[in-house]
Design a protein around this nucleic acid. Sequence first.
DNA 1: AAAATTCCTACCACGTCAATAGGTTTTCGG
DNA 2: CCGAAAACCTATTGACGTGGTAGGAATTTT
Lengths: 146, 146
Amino acid sequence: MRVSTKGRYGLRVALELALRYGGSPVPVREIAENQGISEKYMEHLISILKNAGLVKSVRGAKGGYVLSLPPSRITLLDIIKPLEGELSPVECVDNPGICDRSSTCVARDIWRRVKERVEGILRSITLQDLVDEHNRRVSAGFMYYI
Amino acid sequence: MRVSTKGRYGLRVALELALRYGGSPVPVREIAENQGISEKYMEHLISILKNAGLVKSVRGAKGGYVLSLPPSRITLLDIIKPLEGELSPVECVDNPGICDRSSTCVARDIWRRVKERVEGILRSITLQDLVDEHNRRVSAGFMYYI
DNA sequence: AAAATTCCTACCACGTCAATAGGTTTTCGG
DNA sequence: CCGAAAACCTATTGACGTGGTAGGAATTTT
C-alpha cells in the first residue's frame, strides 16, 4: 500500500511551487537542490505534472516552472493522481471485467470503500492548506528560538 | 497504492474459513481449488496467517486449517496487516527517523491521516460482516432465478 | 505401511521503480 | 550575435519486490 517516490516527491515539488506562487518561474535545479533529489529525476517528475496541466513551463534562461492555478484551486488528489495512477488497492475496483467474480465479490466492496476514503481525504485538502500549515510551523519554530 | 496478491488472496482465504467456521479443518488443497490459486502459493500465504495467530492448523491426514477465533472477533485489519505489513503510504509515517524533515513535514501529516483512515475502515469490518453480506447475496441470487 | 496433509527452505523469472545518461531546443543577457 | 541557462526528449540501467515453483521432511489418520 505504498505511494511511490513519484507521489512523494511530486507533492513536495508542488508544495514548493505553491510557496512561491506569484513570483518568477522556479528552475528544476533549485527545487532539486532544496529537496535533495537528483535534478534529472526531478525533471522527469515535473514533466508529468506539466502534462497533467498543473504546472506551466517557461523555457530558456530565467525560465522554470510555475503552478498554472492558484494553490487554493489545486487539491492533493489533482497532484497525486497523474503521478500514481488510480488509487485503487486492487485492479478490479476500476476494471470489473478483470475478474468474473466482481459482481458478487464482497471483498471488492471493501476495496472500493478504501479507495473512496483515500480519494476523499486527498480531495479535501488543497495546496493552500499545506502552505498555511507550513507557514504556521515555520513561525512557531521561529518563536521557539527567541 | 496497490495491495499485493498476498492481501487479496489472504482475505479470500479468511472468508472461506469463516464460511466454514465450526466445521472440520479445511485443507489447503480445497481452498486453492475453490479460489483457482496455486496450492503451493496458498500454502505460503496461510502460513503467514498461522504465524499471526489467526488460524490454527491440524497436521496429518484429515487435517487442515480452522480460524482460531470466531469470525465476529477477527477484523479485516487483523488479516491484512500480517500479509501486507504496515499500511502507511510512506515509510516515514511509521519510522520518522528515516527522514530528517519528519518533525516539520506537512506532507507526512497527510500520509498519516490516510493510513489512519484505511486502518479505520478495515478495523471496523469483521469476517462475520463479510459472511453475512455473502449469504445475503447468495440468497438474493437464488431468489432471482426462481 | 500408505496416504494425506502440514511444514520448511531454497530458488527463479519477471516487471516495475528509481535513477542516470546524453543529448536537442529555446530564450535571455550582454 | 554569442554564450549560458534552462526546458525538453528518448533511451538505458541496476536493484528490488512480487508472484510463483520445487522438493522434500515431519506428522497424523486409516
